[in-house]
């Protein structure tokens, strides 16, 4: 147990929800980004998977919408400590995109418009664990929350769910992304409280 700060009581506890360590529940949807919000034209949007052999697989906005969509309802955990439960999204499981991709890579580096990157093990993007999403709670995904399309990998801290995503680069060796280069954890499992390098 931590050191008690005298007189601190905290919110009334409800036993009903269990959150990852150090997280608190919020009803809003706060925003974490390192810079200005990029505005992207849909007719110019594209998503590219580049394999370790340099092979590129591309999808335009229209092609993305043609893929089968899913509506996952998931909990979000942000490294800035808030968690938001039961959010519903619409998008395409990365499994559908990877059907056509031939790779032996173990790692992925997601790239975004604006230059943001984040690294994840490839296996965390597959088997129904990750989506490219374009709707939030039944509405078009707003630019401040990563629209037109963001990555959604809800079992990891939210910075791994790259906003304004435009590609995934497959790598044989792990390479730190933007926040990871600035001291944040390479994997980022909220249940193990992997916020920073060394956690």
């Amino acid at each position: 147990m931590g050191i008690v700060s005298p007189g601190f009581q905290g919110k009334p506890r409800s036993a009903a929800v269990t959150l990852p360590p150090g997280q608190y529940l919020t009803e809003d949807f706060p925003v974490l980004s390192a810079g200005p919000t990029p505005r992207i034209q849909l007719d110019q949007w594209e998503f590219v998977i580049t394999t370790e052999a340099g092979v590129k697989h591309r999808w335009s906005w229209a092609e993305l919408l043609e893929l089968p969509s899913e509506t996952p309802t998931v909990d979000l955990h942000c490294v800035t400590k808030w968690s938001k439960l039961g959010t519903t999204w619409r998008g395409v499981a990365l499994d559908s995109l990877f059907e056509q991709v031939d790779t032996a890579a173990d790692f992925a580096l997601a790239h975004s418009y604006g230059g943001y990157t984040t690294n994840l093990p490839l296996e965390d993007l597959l088997d129904g664990q990750a989506w490219l999403v374009y709707e939030y709670e039944g509405e078009e995904l707003g630019a401040e929350h990563g629209g037109p399309v963001r990555l959604l990998v809800p079992h990891l801290y939210l910075w791994k769910s790259a906003k304004w995503v435009n590609g995934i680069q497959l790598l044989v060796q792990d390479e730190p992304g933007f926040w990871e280069s600035a001291g944040y954890h390479d994997y980022g499992d909220p249940w193990r409280e992997q916020r920073y390098q060394g956690d």
């Binding site: 230059g115 280069s181 001291g183 060394g198």
Partner: peptide, 14 residues
């Protein structure tokens, strides 16, 4: 936005 925001990654636990 440069990828290596900070040269030299933090090591050790905070």
């Amino acid at each position: 936005m440069a990828r290596a925001a900070v040269p030299g990654r933090l090591t050790g636990r905070l």
